[in-house]
């Protein structure tokens, strides 16, 4: 059985577009388990329900898919410990004014820790920082230097250690999930009688996840649309 680990971002992007339901048919065709950690669940469900009044209904929708076992919540000491270890490395990779920049959150690191524990097949993450730190830390460093208008030093030892631990992690985003849902025909019920309805449908879901936080550029969306049609 395959294992796909989710960060909070893609679940948020899908829920905000009323597309969380696509996880059920995607899970069925892939025979995969969809997992989140307790820390990610906390961000998705507990914070909106217990701390803020905003996005409570969205949180309930996520809870529904947790309770019907589409999404499995995994919590164990090994994941928690590994998450803290990863967090201490990741948050000591860049330094400005003699201060280590705390760029990542425990929830993201717990998802990576779970991926490593389960030897998972994919990590679904929408936001760019965690992805860049794994795929191209130098680019992340450039962004930080440029945006902060200050000297940001790299801790090469920690960067190499993080790279070594996370090497081989395969990342996808919600934008790939909605494209697959489109390809598999799960969204066909939304096809209309208007001209170019397939293109409109695809663009609508791609732009939908982008506008709700998936780090995908306009150029990439255009590229996906060209590939699909």
């Amino acid at each position: 059985m395959k294992t796909i680990v989710f960060d909070a971002g893609p679940i948020i992007s899908l829920t905000m577009n009323n597309l969380l339901w696509i996880l059920e048919p995607l899970k069925k065709i892939s025979n995969a388990e969809f997992c989140i950690t307790e820390q990610v669940k906390h961000e998705l469900v507990d914070t909106p329900l217990n701390k803020t009044r905003k996005y409570m209904f969205e949180a309930l929708q996520v809870l529904h898919y947790i309770e019907n076992k589409t999404i499995e919540v995994i919590d164990n000491d090994a994941v928690r410990n590994q998450a803290l270890h990863l967090l201490s490395i990741a948050n000591n990779c860049f330094n400005a004014f003699g201060h280590n920049m705390q760029i990542l959150h425990e929830a993201e690191m717990s998802a990576i820790a779970l991926y490593l524990q389960k030897k998972a097949d994919a990590f679904v993450v929408d936001e760019k920082t965690a992805r860049l730190l794994m795929e191209s830390p130098d680019r992340l460093h450039s962004i930080m230097k440029h945006k902060l208008h200050t000297k940001v030093e790299k801790n090469k030892e920690n960067l190499n250690q993080f790279k070594k631990i996370t090497r081989g992690i395969k990342v996808i985003r919600s934008v790939e999930l909605v494209t697959l849902a489109y390809e598999k025909g799960f969204l066909d019920k939304y096809l209309s009688s208007m001209p170019s309805s397939r293109k409109t449908l695809l663009e609508s879901v791609l732009w939908g996840v982008k506008l709700n936080g998936c780090a995908v550029s306009k150029r990439e969306i255009e590229q996906i649309v060209r590939m699909e049609l």
Binding site: A8, S13, M16, E43, T47, L104, T129, K147
Partner: peptide
């Protein structure tokens, strides 16, 4: 924009990630 993750930025500001991602 400065390179912090969405979850970290939400934690610092005391807001939910739902609000920030949106």
């Amino acid at each position: 924009e400065h390179g912090l993750s969405c979850a970290k930025a939400s934690q610092i500001l005391g807001i939910s990630q739902w609000e920030l991602m949106n």
